[in-house]
Design a protein around this nucleic acid. Sequence first.
DNA 1: TGATGGGTTTAACGTAGGTCATCGTTCGCA
DNA 2: TGCGAACGATGACCTACGTTAAACCCATCA
Lengths: 246, 246
Amino acid sequence: MTSNTVRPLIAKLENYGPLSAEERQVLDAAVSGVREIATGADMVSEGSSPDHSTLLLGGFAGRYNITREGARQITSLHVPGDFVDLHCYLMKPMDHSIVALTTCKVAMVPHDVLGVIFDTQPRLSRLFWLNTLIDGATHRRWSIGLGSLLAHQHLAHLICELYRRMEQIGRTEDGSFHMPLTQLLLSECLALSPVHTNRVVKMLRGEQVIRWERDLITITDWDRLADIGEFEATYLRIPPAEVAAP
Amino acid sequence: MTSNTVRPLIAKLENYGPLSAEERQVLDAAVSGVREIATGADMVSEGSSPDHSTLLLGGFAGRYNITREGARQITSLHVPGDFVDLHCYLMKPMDHSIVALTTCKVAMVPHDVLGVIFDTQPRLSRLFWLNTLIDGATHRRWSIGLGSLLAHQHLAHLICELYRRMEQIGRTEDGSFHMPLTQLLLSECLALSPVHTNRVVKMLRGEQVIRWERDLITITDWDRLADIGEFEATYLRIPPAEVAAP
DNA sequence: TGATGGGTTTAACGTAGGTCATCGTTCGCA
DNA sequence: TGCGAACGATGACCTACGTTAAACCCATCA
């Protein structure tokens, strides 16, 4: 039996193919040192060379860099089940930091354990590689959003992406999911000012494609939201949406 | 003895560590079907599911997507030695196309051969993985440029990046390299209008940090150019620049 | 030698999104 | 019950970059 610790990771990986009992156990044995990270604290710092990678078990995290002007650009968002810095197994030192955007629960996987897995578990190795490939594909989508979409389209795309990723780990319900990020944090993902972020949120609400109350986002018209954001899920390697308009 | 075909790939991979004679031969034996692609032609198309990956041996290529508005966003540039679609070994169908930005020479590596390499050559496998990780790190830098840098900074960053990557494969000389892209293509990388691209080129020329004649870019003041673009090479996994101001 | 066409440059004017400033709302907490 | 801090909303004005249009440069080729 595997413990519950790695369940979000297994849930995510199994979207790409079933895992054997042995593979689950290897994953379970790989993690150590579960701990909590407070909101706003870095879980990995630019310039450091960790000897382990970090698995996100609960909460939202984000990779970021800060420009000389002081702007913080969040280059990716992470949800439970994400291996936030798997890449640092081969790429040190870190060229960016990773911050806990909410209170986060994380576990560590030592790099020597990763090395053994890589040498003895070809299927898991491919899944880890695939993990970083999906990461890269997601970066490309963000580039398109940053460069070639209008602000409200970019936001629509991001909401679609987050919904599908939350769905992948079983954290959606009837078109809703918990989105604990403030508009300020969102603006750092979208590279917009907080004021304009607010304007485009208002715009999507006005278009009746989403509701957003407290930290709960409800997609009230998936098709139109996806159309606005030019969202197609293929890059996430999950089948097309089954979310219906109500 | 290995043939000359895979020399650019070997040159690139050896930046990250030496290859054994056996590994070189494995790479040499892996490639097949060298061919030329005409300027402007797609070498890989969105939606396709190739059974091989493509190695760029000569010329410049770019990954791109086209938005509904008709804008073409180039999300990455590729130089000889780059494995332009290594990721499609595990990620099919393609979620973007890859176009030859100049006349290109390419070779193919069948996915079943990649599978054998992955199962039998752990060091090469790690290098392939590293290859995609550097790809991802580069995407993140582009995101920062697209989102948080001013246009002239973004251009400065791109020129620095291209210089270091050309240097990696031995294609620079005294601060110069051949940059066969037109300002129009550049504008599709930077997500700027062609007009504004021209303005920022003019700006960098006026600042005396680059010269650009025909297809030859000469960096006349590396330190200032890198400073303008907030460029740090760590994400490329190559040591800091030895390029001196003249 | 002149025509054609891709690429570059420049000027005049338009707009998406930024900045600044203010105010309302919510919620934890004394 | 009231206070302070963080977040959200909104108006007035500003700017980096987009758009349109025209000229110019320089290869190639008839």
